[in-house]
């Protein structure tokens, strides 16, 4: 066990260095395209594309889908979709280098894999709703928003992590 932990430590980048590099990536993104990072937006594009493919008229009638579904090009041809494809490639490269590619369900020893998966779905659903309502997720609203020093970014960050800390105690069994 001790060895494994040490080994993991070595394979993870120093967090401050990682943060610094991530900051450079954000500056790069803003300098070239005028926008920052994001993630939930790409999944939203996938949802819109699916709804549009299955029920085009329904998509056009909905105020939520229509702005994207009524355009000529596919909702998947968006900046964030390309960015997320990049994220996948980048994560895969790093996973290969660090030798972390392994199919598994990661969970606390106090809960079963099944419980973990149910909680993951539930968390995902909440994140899906929250990111739409909050106009962006942790990367798009909180991280990028803080980088530009926008008030919305700070409000978003405080709301997400404030809630996390407030209710962490009730969910401790899932993690520790």
């Amino acid at each position: 066990m001790e060895n494994k932990v040490l080994e993991n430590k070595r394979k993870y980048m120093n967090p401050y260095l990682a943060g610094f590099l991530l900051g450079l990536v954000i500056i790069f993104a803003f300098y070239y395209t005028g926008r920052g990072l994001g993630a939930s937006g790409a999944i939203k594009s996938a949802v819109v594309a699916s709804v549009d493919a299955v029920a085009h008229n329904h998509a056009l009638a909905s105020e939520f889908y229509a702005p994207y579904a009524s355009k000529e090009e596919s909702p998947l041809s968006s900046w964030l979709v390309f960015e997320i494809i990049g994220v996948m490639i980048g994560a895969l490269i790093s996973g290969i280098i660090a030798g972390r590619l392994k199919l598994k369900v990661e969970h606390s020893p106090k809960i079963s894999s099944k419980t973990r998966l149910i909680m993951a779905i539930l968390g995902g659903v909440l994140f899906g709703i929250g990111s739409q309502l909050g106009r962006g997720c942790t990367s798009g609203a909180a991280l990028t928003g803080m980088a530009t020093l926008s008030t919305a970014g700070f409000v978003s960050m405080l709301a997400i992590f404030g809630t996390g800390y407030t209710f962490a105690w009730f969910f401790r069994k899932f993690w520790i």
Binding site: T33, G34, R35, G36, L37, G38, A39, S40, G41, P67, Y68, K71, S78, W79, L80, S131, R135, G136, C137, S139, G140, A141, T144, G145
Partner: peptide, 14 residues
């Protein structure tokens, strides 16, 4: 996300 007109600010994040 709609591109319209000339020179405009960038569109949204996430």
């Amino acid at each position: 996300t709609l591109k319209k007109g000339k020179k405009k600010g960038a569109a949204g994040g996430c």
